[in-house]
Design a protein around this nucleic acid. Structure first.
Lengths: 240, 240
DNA sequence: TACGCTAGTTAGTATTCACTTACTAGCTAA
DNA sequence: TTAGCTAGTAAGTGAATACTAACTAGCGTA
C-alpha cells in the first residue's frame, strides 16, 4: 500500500478518473492485491477466528470477486498461513534484542525490566489484531499455535530466565525460581493489555513507560535481595 | 450421568442387552439428555470455538439424532448460552470468598496472596475446558464475553485492589498503584496455567501450593515496604 | 496487429450447515 | 383398549460455504 506499484500507469483512458470518485483502483498488481488480501484477512480472522470468517466476506472487503482470493491462495487455510509468513518477514526485533543484551551486560536491572515490559505493552497496543489472531490460533489449535508461543513468549522466557538465574547466582536476587519469575514478569503487562483491549478495561491506563515503570518496580523489589534479614521462608520450592 | 435416571427400566424386551454391549442407553429422561448435551457441547465448543463445532457433531457424540438437540434448545446459540447458565448454577465460590475475607481481616498478607493465587491455579487446572470456553467467548465477542470478565476477573480485581489500597494506606505496602498491582498478581498464575495447558509448557510445574508460594513470595516482596531506605523512585506514576 | 500475459469477472458445483417436518416407539394411566 | 405424552428417528430444506470452470478486459511488446 505504501510501496509504489511497479507499473506506473495510473488510470485507464476509457474510464475517466472522475466517474468513479472514491472507489478503490479497479486493477492492481498481483503483489499489491496479495498484500491487500492478507492485510484484510488478518484483521477479519483476528476478529472472528478462522471458521468465523468466510472467503466471500474477505473478497467483498477487498472489492474483488471471491475467485481472486483463490488465484493467490490455493485454499482458505493457505491464506491463513500466509498471514504469519508476511508478519515474520515484517517483524524486526533485532533492535530490541540488541538493547536487551546491552542492558543485561550492564546488569542494569531496572532498565532491563522496564524495557522488556515496555516492549510487551507496545507490541500489544501497536499490533493488537495480530495478537488476537495469535491467541485465536492458540485456542483453535492450528499449527500456527506453536509458532505463536515460540515467537512471542518462549524467546522472552528463555532470555529472562537466563538473566534472572545469573542474578540469583551473583547474589543480587533472592533464591527465586527463575522460570516462575520470568513468566510472572511476562504475565503482568501481557494480561493487562489483553484485558484492556478485550473488555475495554480502562481501569488502568497510561503511557507504556509509566505502566512499565510500575510493573518493573513491583517485580524488581519482589526478586531483589533485601538488605535486612529475610522474613520470608528460607527456601522457596524449586519445581522446575 | 452419575444421577440415576427417574425411570427404572433398563432395556427394552425386544432388544437383548447382549446385542448392544457397551452402547449408551437408548432412551434417557429429558433432563438427563439435556445435561449430557450441555456437557458435550461445552467440551467441544471449548476445543474449537462456537463456529468451529457443528450441531451434527455434538449429536453424534451424544449418540442421538440432531433433531434432539433442537428439541431441547431452540438454536445453536441457545445451547451455547445454556452452558454458562449451568455453570453459574454449579459454581460455588462462597467458601473461597469467605476465606478471603477472613484472611483480609486478619491482615495476613502472605496467606492472603497465596490463597488467591492457589485459587486461580486450581480453577484453571480443574476446569480447563470451561476456561478455554470463556477465552473463546471473549475473543469471538459473544455476549458471554463480558460475563467472563465479571465472573472470573473483575471480582478478584476489585477485591484485591481494595485490599492493596488499604494496606498502602496503613503503611504496610509501598506506594504502588493498587489497580496495577492487583492485575499483576492475577496475571502471574493465570497466564502460567494458560501456557501450561495451551502449549504443553511444562517448564514450570508443581503443586498449586508450591507455585502459589513462589508467586506470592515475589509479589509480596514487590509491594511490601522495605525496612531500609528506599532505593527505588520515590513516587511511582499513579495512572488510574 | 496479433499474441500472450495478468487481473479480473460471472456463474456455477458439491457439500455442509442450522434447523424443520412428519412420523414412531414405548410408557402411563383413565 | 385407547388416548396422550415424551424421547426418539429419518428425511428432508433453503441458505451458505469453499472452491472451480470458463471466459474477458486491458496492457506491453515482438
Amino acid at each position: 500500500m505504501t510501496n509504489a506499484p511497479p507499473t506506473v500507469s495510473t488510470a485507464s483512458p476509457t474510464v475517466s478518473t472522475a466517474s468513479r470518485p472514491a472507489a478503490a483502483p479497479r486493477r492492481m498488481s498481483g503483489e499489491d492485491r496479495r498484500r491487500q488480501i492478507v492485510r484484510i484477512a488478518m484483521r477479519r480472522f483476528s476478529e472472528k477466528g478462522f471458521s468465523g470468517v468466510t472467503t466471500k466476506e474477505i473478497a467483498a472487503e477487498a472489492g474483488v470477486s471471491e475467485a481472486i482470493i483463490f488465484r493467490h491462495f490455493a485454499t482458505k487455510h493457505d491464506l491463513y498461513a500466509a498471514i504469519l509468513d508476511q508478519k515474520m518477514k515484517d517483524a524486526d526485533a533485532a533492535a530490541f534484542w540488541a538493547r536487551m543484551r546491552q542492558l543485561a551486560a550492564r546488569r542494569d536491572d531496572r532498565q532491563f525490566f522496564e524495557a522488556i515490559m515496555q516492549h510487551i505493552i507496545e507490541r500489544h497496543r501497536a499490533d493488537y489484531s495480530f495478537q488476537r489472531l495469535l491467541f485465536f490460533s492458540a485456542l483453535e489449535g492450528h499449527e500456527l499455535s506453536e509458532m505463536f508461543f515460540r515467537l512471542y513468549a518462549r524467546d522472552i522466557f528463555d532470555f529472562l530466565g537466563d538473566y534472572i538465574e545469573t542474578r540469583v547466582r551473583e547474589g543480587a536476587f533472592r533464591e527465586v525460581n527463575p522460570q516462575v519469575a520470568a513468566r510472572s514478569l511476562f504475565a503482568m503487562p501481557f494480561l493487562q493489555t489483553m484485558f484492556e483491549q478485550l473488555h475495554g478495561d480502562q481501569t488502568v491506563t497510561g503511557s507504556p513507560e509509566a505502566l512499565a515503570g510500575d510493573y518493573a518496580a513491583i517485580f524488581l523489589d519482589g526478586v531483589r535481595r533485601r538488605a535486612t534479614a529475610p522474613t520470608t521462608r528460607p527456601s522457596p520450592a524449586r519445581t522446575s
